[in-house]
Nucleic acid binder design. Structure first.
Lengths: 120, 120
DNA sequence: TCTATCGTTGACACGGGTGTCAGGGTCCAG
DNA sequence: CTGGACCCTGACACCCGTGTCAACGATAGA
């Protein structure tokens, strides 16, 4: 599919898709005329990218973790240098902290809302 | 306490603390000489702010949710306009989505790591 | 064929969070 | 009283994710 359709399907814009490409997050083929040609599975991939960006991860990190998210597992040992594994482990810890922080605060807000609504 | 100590305790910098203040997230008193004077409880507050920032929330939103996080509850009805309650509800939903996205991807990475380590 | 729509690249601009530096004041220990 | 460590404000500059626009090429329908 072409860039416009992918943008529509992922509620993003062509601009962003080109940006993600420049950051090395997706690499579409090209048609003979130079147009980008995206596989269907990239819809999910882009949605995932957008979710992670919205969650606060930079493209630099997203690029590293994307290869780990393929299912079924296709593990490329060439990619899996020890430093990179350390980086990933480190990143999962940061993600866990983010999750805890978000959860704690979301629950507090929800409780606040329920109290306020009760008094209303 | 002064800005340097708070920065040390929160692993941030004076620069950031002044920035958070300009964004209306914290409002320290002033000593006679103009130096900022921070209460102890602001350590936790700043850590919370930094956690939320790291999780991807903008100061604009953090500013809105901070008043909901006081315990024991001190609900200021003047602050709780209906639009603001809607905003907050909306924001909790976004936070939930972020949490799900982070959790899903973190777990996938962890599983990837365990597979790789097993093969090593 | 003309035109509208979509694609290409490249550039400029903006807002948000941060780093850094300049120019100046305060305070304390030697 | 002087040196160093800390504070103040304000500005410039960076990176990052996006928006927008210009100038151009491809495609499809009237």
């Amino acid at each position: 599919m072409r860039i416009g359709e992918l943008a529509r399907l992922t509620e993003s814009t062509p601009r962003l898709l080109r940006y993600y490409e420049k950051q090395g997050l997706i690499t579409p083929r090209r048609e003979a005329n130079g147009y980008r040609d995206y596989d269907d599975y990239l819809v999910d991939r882009v949605l995932q990218i957008r979710g992670l960006l919205d969650a606060g991860l930079p493209t630099r990190i997203i690029k590293q973790i994307l290869p780990c998210l393929d299912t079924p597992r296709t593990i490329h040992f060439a990619d899996a240098t020890p430093e990179m594994l350390d980086t990933l482990e480190c990143e999962t810890e940061r993600m866990t902290r983010r999750i805890q922080c978000l959860t704690r605060n979301r629950d507090a807000i929800m409780e606040y809302l329920s109290v306020v609504r009760e008094l209303a």
